[in-house]
């Protein structure tokens, strides 16, 4: 419906691309039955509470930092992505960025 465009949301849904990525990863894993949404909310709210003890969370970047921390913990416990695997592949991505000329698409080697 084209008339919806006239009152679309004034702020972007996600402030940074990785916020959208980690959100989509989580929704996708939930829809594939990897965890229930109730379980997700329980774990995520625990992370928020813990992180909120030391400082007041503003609902911006700190919110998705907590989101990512929660997802990493769930995937580590499930054996789907161990901290060691994440560290290795993260390093591969970092090296790929550092060895790709500016403007070229970045791909993992191999």
């Amino acid at each position: 419906m084209s008339d919806c465009i006239s009152h679309s949301a004034p702020e972007p849904a996600f402030l940074e691309p990785w916020h959208a990525q980690v959100f989509a990863l989580t929704v996708s894993l939930n829809e594939a039955g990897r965890f229930s949404w109730a379980d997700w909310v329980t774990r995520f709210s625990q992370t928020l509470r813990r992180n909120g003890l030391s400082r007041e969370l503003d609902g911006g970047a700190d919110y998705f930092d907590a989101w990512l921390e929660t997802l990493e913990a769930i995937l580590a416990e499930a054996g789907s992505a161990s901290p060691q695997e994440v560290a290795l592949v993260r390093r591969d991505w970092e090296e790929a960025y550092l060895s790709t000329p500016h403007g070229d698409p970045v791909h993992l080697a191999g």
């Binding site: 940074e16 691309p17 990785w18 990525q21 980690v22 990863l25 894993l29 998705f64 930092d65 990512l68 997802l71 990493e72 995937l75 789907s80 992505a81 695997e85 994440v86 560290a87 592949v89 993260r90 591969d92 991505w93 970092e94 790929a96 960025y97 550092l98 060895s99 790709t100 000329p101 500016h102 403007g103 070229d104 970045v106 791909h107 993992l108 080697a109």
Partner: peptide, 30 residues
């Protein structure tokens, strides 16, 4: 990847952005 380039490299994403990319790569491979 160009291994002989003198061009400045691609802008390195933030640490959380790299971790998300890592998760996506691992879960896609599996």
């Amino acid at each position: 990847p160009h291994d002989h380039s003198d061009h400045p490299h691609a802008v390195l994403p933030s640490d959380p952005a790299l971790r998300v990319k890592a998760l996506e790569t691992i879960l896609t491979r599996k």
